[in-house]
Structure formats: C-alpha cells, structure tokens
Design a protein around this nucleic acid. Structure first.
Length: 273
DNA sequence: CTGTAGACCTGGAGGC
DNA sequence: TGCCTCCAGGTCTACA
C-alpha cells in the first residue's frame, strides 16, 4: 500500500490513538523483516511515552525522549489500531505495541519488506535518512531543483523521480500518474527535460500526492477504517494499470513497458520525447 | 560516480 | 481443485 500519501494517511490515522500515550508492552511475533527487529524492543519502550509521531519520506517515526522508533511499511505493510483485544492476531501481524488494556497498534506485513528499527542518534545523520532528498510537497522541491538534478543524467525520468535521494515519497503509481499528466514519456532520458517540462512535472507530482492525501484523509476519518484494513485509497488513476485501455485524452491504446524493472504505463501519443 | 540487476518474501490472478 | 508462472505499492546491495 505505501507511497507517500498512504504513509501520511496511516500516520495521521494512528496519531490520535497514540499521541502522548505510554507503551505498556511490545510483542514481537516475527522479527525477521527487512532488518532484524531489535529483540529488546519491549525493554526499550515499556512505560515510555510517545511524544510525537511524524513522517520522513516513507518512514513513520515515533518520538520518545530517549530515541526514535522508525517504521517502514515496505510493499505490503500497514498499521492497524485495535480497540478490542479479542480480535484474533493475523498470520502476518508481526509486531504488537500495546498502549493500555484496550488499545494496541499492530504492524502487519505479509512480504516482510518493511522494517521496525530503534534509533538513538540524530535522525539527520542516521544511515537510512542522511541521503534522502527533499520532501516533494516542500518548497525546496521545485522546477529549478529538478532541472539541476536531471542535467547530465541518462536515466529515465521516471527512475529519477522515484530515486529517494532526488526526491522522497514518489513511488511507482504516482510516478506514472505525474508523468502522464505532464505529457512526458517515462523513459525519456532525464537530461533532455526542458525547464518547462520540469515545471510541469514538479507541479503534477505535488498535485497527484496532495489529491491522494486528501482522499486518504477522507477514508481515515472513519474509525472503522483505522481498525480494519486501510486498503488502497481510491485514487482516480489515469494511466497506472490501464494497459491496452484507451487514453482518456486521445483514446490511443495505453502501452506497458518495464523501466528499471518497474511496471510503467504511458500513452504513446500524448507522452513523447 | 553512474546505472542496472538481483535480492528479500508472500499471496493473488490467470492459464492449463 | 491443483499446479505453475507471473506479477505486485520498496529499496538496499553488489557489480559492471
């Protein structure tokens, strides 16, 4: 489920139930995620208060006075707030954070590509964070920046905007969508982008993410959705997954190719270079 | 440094 | 039903 909008929505969904609360216990049922979950997590977190909950790139960060709990959802992870302890644990509910007698947070991740890590150093210096690019919705991600970053780069523009050292949070679906809306071919060598195309692309990257966050936010305002599976937010997709369907703009058949081993969809009429 | 392929892991969909 | 193959929202690591 997780590109930036889903992670943001997830963070916003869990925050009201966790903020300022103390962890009463931690149960690790499966510690082999992308990296080993620290086996002393219970000792680290028991009786500790969650001071804040933030997001950086696709990481959710729980702030404690003595460090940070870093959660990444990988490809298939999600977080559930459970308000009824009698709800049976699922096969892939790997780590359980109990808040008090009736509220707990469950980390669920069938493919185990995510991670749960404990970090005590300055987050900006942390190995996984220090090379991250700017947040896409912040001012620092703008046309001039993208233009500069794309000079002398032969890699496909789609791969460039998915490169988390260039800009964070843009995953495969939204990269496809933003390029379609910008009339840019996903395989176009980055260095060929004009300033005008950079302006369009930055605009639509932000646009697509903002709209998705809005829709996710709507979904999550319903308590049931925080409890149940967040599912995939019904973003109106124009191009992703639409192989062989007509382009909504010109009715040309949408093509499907692999770029950097990732599924890429484009309209051969509208998106050129 | 740049760019690419492989690796991690499970489940669902579709073909036979 | 069952088995096989392919595919999936991410990103680190190894290698040319």
């Amino acid at each position: 489920m997780p590109e930036l909008p889903e992670v943001e929505t997830c963070k916003n969904g869990i925050t009201p139930y966790l903020i300022h609360k103390k962890i009463s216990s931690v149960q690790i049922r499966q510690s082999k995620l992308r990296w080993q979950v620290p086996d002393n997590l219970h000792e680290i977190l028991v009786n500790q208060q969650i001071l804040n909950i933030t997001r950086r790139a696709k990481y959710i960060i729980l702030h404690f006075h003595h460090g940070y709990l870093i959660i990444h959802l990988g490809m298939s992870g999600h977080l559930k707030i459970i308000n009824d302890p009698s709800i049976a644990l699922g096969k892939h509910d790997h780590v359980i954070f109990n808040i008090d007698s009736d509220i707990s947070l469950r980390y669920h991740d069938p493919r185990k590509f995510g991670c749960i890590l404990w970090v005590q150093e300055n987050l900006n210096q942390y190995k996984l964070f220090k090379h991250l690019g700017p947040e896409p919705l912040e001012q620092h991600f703008n046309a001039e920046y993208l233009y500069k970053k794309s000079r002398n780069k032969n890699i496909a523009i789609k791969s460039l905007i998915m490169d988390q050292t260039v800009v964070v949070g843009i995953g495969n679906i939204y990269a496809n969508e933003a390029l379609f809306l910008s009339f840019i071919h996903p395989a176009m060598p980055s260095k060929l982008l004009s300033m005008h195309q950079c302006q369009n692309l930055v605009h639509y990257c932000k646009n697509v993410l903002i709209n998705a966050i809005k829709q996710g936010g709507t979904t999550l305002s319903d308590f049931k959705n925080v409890l149940g599976k967040p599912g995939y937010f019904k973003q109106e997709l124009h191009i992703y997954g639409k192989k062989n369907l007509p382009c909504i703009r010109c009715h040309t058949q949408i093509q499907h190719i692999k770029i950097g081993q990732r599924s890429s969809f484009f309209c051969p009429q509208c998106q050129t270079y």
